[in-house]
Design a binder for these strands. Structure first.
Lengths: 111, 111
DNA sequence: TATAAATGAAACCGAAAGGTTTCGTATTAT
DNA sequence: ATAATACGAAACCTTTCGGTTTCATTTATA
């Protein structure tokens, strides 16, 4: 399928979060906007590799890019991270209390 | 690298969450344990395909498997979802208030 | 103006992902 | 005992992923 064109915003976010380098980039950007060169120095890979990760982060709308002359500042855009957190929030009931275990037992009897 | 052997539990979770089918499986399992056949009926793919997804969910420790005779009941195990949510919680400060915007402005002046 | 810097873009590569079909094997039901 | 059920496992295929090297382009500076 076409992951980029899919109009489910959740997909773009979780796709972007799947890679450890991209998660590390997000944490870097939490400390302020960075260009691709500055970011690449923190990772053991070439600049184009980091640039590709940034593109995927941009597609998932986890960052925005601010063009400043010949520089391209990548800014963290945290709203979509909140979307991901809310998606996970659906499962909160299953770790907040012990209802989950009880539920499992009850449904086992029903089957 | 070796995603399975990596002893960073975060990686296994986010890897598992990257696929929409696997996220849907988790939501299905939130309503109770299911065997692979029951799950496969809900998706437009074959049973072995769903079985592979379940294996990845198990590797990420998002589900546990209970063998009951010839059946294999897949149970949601929500603890690692909480791990993912907490990882995202690090960024809460950036959407909770407007400090993020202020921070960006300040650091732009510093550069 | 020449040069250095910051980056995009393209071509390419091996490995991983996501799917299929086919076959084998326990376990349950008739 | 036989047949149906619920699986796992293997082989195979195509696409995506994550990385590289090379080259072109735009912007800043000596």
């Amino acid at each position: 399928m076409d992951a980029q064109t899919t109009h489910d915003p959740t997909q773009g976010v979780f796709r972007a979060l799947a890679d450890p380098t991209r998660r590390a980039i997000l944490q870097q950007l939490a400390q302020g906007p960075r260009g691709v060169n500055a970011l690449a120095q923190g990772f053991e890979m070439t600049r184009p590799a980091v640039a590709k990760h940034l593109k995927i982060l941009e597609e998932g709308r986890l960052i925005t890019v601010e063009q400043r002359g010949r520089e391209r500042l990548n800014h963290l855009q945290p709203e979509m991270l909140a979307v991901a957190q809310r998606w996970l929030g659906f499962f909160e009931a299953f770790w907040d209390d012990k209802l989950a275990d009880l539920k499992r037992e009850v449904e086992r009897d029903d089957d």
